[in-house]
């Protein structure tokens, strides 16, 4: 279509989807097809729609999303590896009115930061943990993560993860759901438009709980891809999620607030 036709077409139409203004107007550094960009966007859309930008504080992790503050246009603290939840506790306890979320990968949250994660949830500290689980250490070059599936090849499990030698993949969301401090725990994905809609709803719901001052920690796990680390095309990686990964990491709510249970 020529530019002219395009303009005429648009004139008669309404804009139904645009990039949220809470994302910086800058291209991200993530690899083609990486789910980080989608999740960043969903969180910022939720913050914008809920109108809480002026009291939102994000905690960036160590890993691929260490520079999240270059994309998320909200006040952000970059925490030490694994310590994002401790950092969030510090803020939330002194300033309970702030809306706080951490954004952490699986190496950050489920390996080096396991202690901080468990105890923050056990205290029921009222913030949101957005947990990106792609079963690999992307930033450092594709090493095995605690969440790596049995048999999966990574740069430190070159023959596939041998569970006798390297332990088993951790379903940390299910572990955390056992703690009374956990308020809402769900596992989502962003590998299709349908999944993205659901994930957005979950993130928004979790933030709403925090805004309402509901008791406990919320965790939205997003089982995502790592095309570079998995050595797949974006399309293959999304298909691999459907075919293999979701069998182990089953999508859906793991713990919901008492009233909603039925």
């Amino acid at each position: 279509m020529s530019e002219k036709i395009k303009d005429n077409v648009i004139e008669s139409m309404k804009e139904v989807w645009e990039r949220t203004k809470l994302l910086h107007d800058a291209p991200n550094h993530y690899c083609p097809g990486c789910g980080h960009g989608v999740v960043h966007r969903l969180i910022m859309e939720a913050v914008e729609e809920l109108g809480v930008m002026d009291r939102t504080i994000a905690i960036a992790p160590v890993g691929c999303s260490v520079l999240a503050y270059n994309y998320l246009n909200v006040d952000t603290q970059q925490a030490a590896h694994g310590r994002a939840t401790a950092c969030a506790t510090g803020i939330k306890r002194v300033f309970p009115d702030k809306i706080v979320f951490t954004y952490q990968g699986d190496g950050d949250l489920a390996a080096i930061g396991t202690g901080e994660t468990i105890h923050a949830v056990n205290r029921g500290d009222k913030f949101l943990i957005v947990f990106i689980n792609n079963g690999i250490y992307g930033m450092t070059g594709g090493q095995m993560a605690p969440t790596t599936l049995e048999g999966a090849k990574t740069s430190t499990s070159p023959d596939g993860r041998d569970v006798d030698l390297m332990g088993h993949a951790i379903r940390i969301a299910e572990m955390l759901a056992l703690l009374p401090g956990a308020y809402y725990i769900t596992r989502q994905a962003v590998n299709s438009a349908k999944a993205v809609r659901k994930a957005k709803k979950a993130i928004k719901k979790a933030l709403q709980y925090q805004i309402d001052g509901k008791g406990g920690t919320c965790l939205v796990e997003v089982v995502s891809n790592c095309p570079s680390g998995w050595k797949m095309t974006p399309e293959e990686s999304n298909k691999y999620l459907d075919d293999e990964v979701f069998d182990f990491y089953q999508l859906g709510d793991i713990k919901v607030p008492p009233k909603e249970e039925k």
Binding site: N28, C34, V196
Partner: peptide, 23 residues
């Protein structure tokens, strides 16, 4: 929705404009 770069803007004609997210 699936674009990781958030670089697509969508327009629609007609009465039944149902935004996935309010602008």
């Amino acid at each position: 929705l699936v674009c990781p770069e958030a670089i697509i803007t969508v327009y629609r004609e007609g009465k039944k404009v149902k935004a996935t997210r309010p602008i």
